Simulated assay, not measured.
Amino acid sequence: MSKQMNRLISTNFRKWCYNLTGFNQYGLRRDDCLAENEDVKEALKRLPQHIVDERNFRIVRAMLLDTNKRLLPKEQWTKFEEDVPYLQPIVEEVKKEREEREKWNSE
Results as ranks from 00 to 15, higher is better:
residue 53 D to T: 00
residue 68 N to T: 00
residue 62 A to N: 06
residue 48 P to V: 03
residue 75 E to V: 15
residue 61 R to Y: 11
residue 58 R to W: 03
residue 52 V to K: 08
residue 73 P to C: 06
residue 76 Q to P: 07
residue 46 R to E: 01
residue 66 D to V: 00
residue 75 E to Y: 15
residue 69 K to W: 02
residue 50 H to S: 06
residue 56 N to C: 10
residue 48 P to A: 02
residue 61 R to Q: 15
residue 46 R to H: 07
residue 63 M to C: 13
residue 56 N to H: 13
residue 66 D to G: 10
residue 48 P to I: 01
residue 46 R to L: 00
residue 72 L to W: 03
residue 71 L to M: 08
residue 54 E to T: 03
residue 63 M to R: 13
residue 51 I to P: 05
residue 55 R to D: 08
residue 55 R to Q: 13
residue 58 R to P: 03
residue 61 R to V: 03
residue 69 K to F: 06
residue 63 M to D: 14
residue 59 I to N: 09
residue 64 L to T: 08
residue 46 R to K: 05
residue 69 K to C: 05
residue 54 E to H: 07
residue 67 T to N: 10
residue 55 R to L: 09
residue 46 R to C: 08
residue 47 L to V: 00
residue 46 R to G: 03
residue 64 L to I: 00
residue 70 R to L: 11
residue 72 L to G: 05
residue 47 L to Q: 08
residue 75 E to M: 13
residue 71 L to I: 04
residue 76 Q to W: 12
residue 50 H to Y: 12
residue 73 P to Y: 12
residue 48 P to D: 04
residue 51 I to C: 10
residue 62 A to P: 05
residue 47 L to Y: 05
residue 59 I to W: 06
residue 53 D to K: 14
residue 53 D to Y: 14
residue 66 D to E: 12
residue 55 R to K: 08
residue 51 I to R: 14
residue 59 I to D: 08
residue 60 V to D: 12
residue 64 L to G: 10
residue 63 M to V: 00
residue 50 H to R: 12
residue 64 L to Q: 15
residue 72 L to R: 04
residue 63 M to K: 14
residue 76 Q to R: 14
residue 68 N to L: 04
residue 48 P to S: 01
residue 56 N to E: 15
residue 56 N to Q: 15
residue 54 E to P: 02
residue 62 A to I: 04
residue 64 L to R: 14
residue 51 I to G: 07
residue 46 R to F: 05
residue 74 K to F: 01
residue 57 F to C: 01
residue 51 I to L: 14
residue 74 K to R: 14
residue 62 A to F: 08
